[in-house]
Design a protein around this nucleic acid. Structure first.
Length: 419
RNA sequence: GCAGGUGUCGCCAAGUGGUUAAGGCUCCGGAUUGUGGUUCCGAUAUCGUGGGUUCAACUCCCAUCAUCUGCCCCA
């Protein structure tokens, strides 16, 4: 019988990694709450139309990466490839524009994209993100960037760089796209196949081409910055000044475009220089999407947000597992169980308490307690049960306490090792 | 979707055409008769799958699947 495997591009987060994920999530929740963001949970699948409208028909995500299916009533549905569209849908559906603005939300959960798996890229992957809907000035952009930086630095990451660019408002972007297409049209003969395709689908992407020959041809391409109109320029300037005042280091990257159609004004990515992630070094990315709420049928509401990849983030953080807790060593599994239940209650579930279910030999049980890195071994053999006095051993410091009564055991184990 | 690498026990890993497929680690069981990861003993694989070549295949060929890496693109 062959073993079944998880589907391609999916993975199990085993107990060890799970601890790390919990740590990241706990830190995120703390940082978000402190900045006034509240959690929103939306469905894992949505109508396919939501994503094709929101993300853009021409985007790669919609073109070839969606996990789409029809249900038994032939409804076209899609496993969400990202969360922003769904959150905007929910925002509109529940008329949240009537709530105080900006509406500040965070989310976490699995996303799905049908792609070739490789380092830092999976078909089911997990994101944590925030969105702020209903505020136009760049202070809210600054706020979410700042929250993101804070979260990453709290998690101990410091080799990160913020790359940022402005796409300008829609008018600016259209004017620029036109100018760029004019420029590119003369080069199509000499340019790589990918770029020919980009020319058709998303001309801005061409500037990001990795072919050196193409880069040489693009040297004199028009610059987006020159096409920003007054409004866009004002916002962009304020944005950069704000980053300076917050002492957030950044690199303006004029080629940073992003693959989703709904962005305008500020777009940004936080990248790591760690080799761990090789080509997929973007850990957190986002931008402003002023048009999207209206495009999805809502009241015009400017908005901005970002998402970070949990798998990528987790791979950058050292996973140090610390267990601790107390292991009961007993020749009676039943008595150990009764004691464990009582101890868990009386320690208020503040430390891990476990014991041997197989009534193994004394030495085996002690060995287990050590191997599984418990802090304490509590001896509960016949003698202890009869006398009501416990023997407690600190396995880290090799100290043994004799003749403790029950309350002393509780006091001693909880005093120094809370979960 | 394209290009390349890899597939021998839970993990690492020898074997490269010929009798019983090394070894290490982990895990499990046992011994050392209630105190430190020790030591000793034991158990655990038909070599991804299917086909072909051959007297003979883990070793060669083909296909397929899985996985990894790069491209596209992205978190």
């Amino acid at each position: 019988m062959s073993k079944l495997k998880a589907p391609r591009g999916t993975q199990d987060i085993l107990a060890e990694d799970s601890k790390l994920w919990q740590k990241i999530e706990a830190e995120a929740i703390k940082v978000f709450a402190a900045a006034g963001f509240n959690e929103i949970r939306t469905p894992i699948f949505e109508s396919t139309e939501l994503f094709s409208r929101a993300v853009g028909e021409d985007s790669d995500i919609v073109n070839k990466e969606m996990y789409s299916f029809t249900d038994k009533s032939d409804r076209p549905l899609t496993l969400r490839p990202e969360a922003t569209a769904a959150i905007v849908r929910a925002y509109n559906e529940h008329s949240l524009e009537r709530a105080p603005k900006p509406h500040k939300l965070w989310y976490r959960g699995p996303m799905f994209r049908y792609e070739r798996p490789q380092t830092g890229r999976y078909r089911q992957f997990h994101q944590i993100g925030i969105e702020a809907i209903g505020s136009k000035p760049p202070y809210i952009d600054l706020e979410i960037i700042q929250v993101g930086m804070q979260l990453l630095s709290n998690l101990g990451l410091n080799d990160l760089t913020l790359y940022i660019n402005s796409l300008g408002n829609q008018a600016s972007r259209e004017a620029y796209t036109k100018a760029l297409k004019d420029f590119l049209s003369g080069l199509q003969e000499d340019v790589c196949e990918d770029c020919q395709r980009r020319y058709q689908q998303n001309p801005l992407r061409a500037l990001d081409c990795k072919q050196e020959a193409d880069q040489a041809l693009y040297k004199n391409a028009p610059s987006l910055q020159d096409y920003l109109d007054e409004e866009s320029k004002e916002i962009w300037t304020a944005m950069l000044q704000g980053l300076d005042k917050l002492a957030i280091k950044y690199i303006v990257d004029p080629r940073l475009v992003r693959g989703l159609d709904y962005y305008s004004h500020a777009v940004f990515e936080i990248k790591t220089s760690s080799k761990e992630l090789a080509g997929q070094n973007t850990v957190l990315a986002g931008g402003r999407y002023d048009k999207l709420v209206k495009d999805l049928g809502g009241q015009e509401s400017p908005a901005v947000g970002w998402a970070l990849g949990l798998e990528r983030l987790a791979s950058l953080i050292e996973n140090k597992t610390e267990t601790g807790g107390l292991y009961i060593i007993s020749d009676s599994a039943m008595d150990a169980q009764i004691l464990a239940r009582k101890l868990r209650q009386d320690t208020n579930n503040s430390i891990t308490i476990d014991y041997d279910y197989n009534s193994s030999k004394f030495n085996k049980q002690l060995e287990r307690a050590i191997k599984r890195s418990y802090d304490w071994a509590l001896f509960y053999m016949e003698d202890e049960r009869n006398s009501g006095k416990f023997k407690l051993k600190n396995l880290r410091e090799t100290v043994e306490y004799n003749d403790l009564d029950y309350d002393a055991v509780v006091a001693r184990t909880t005093s120094c090792n809370a979960l």
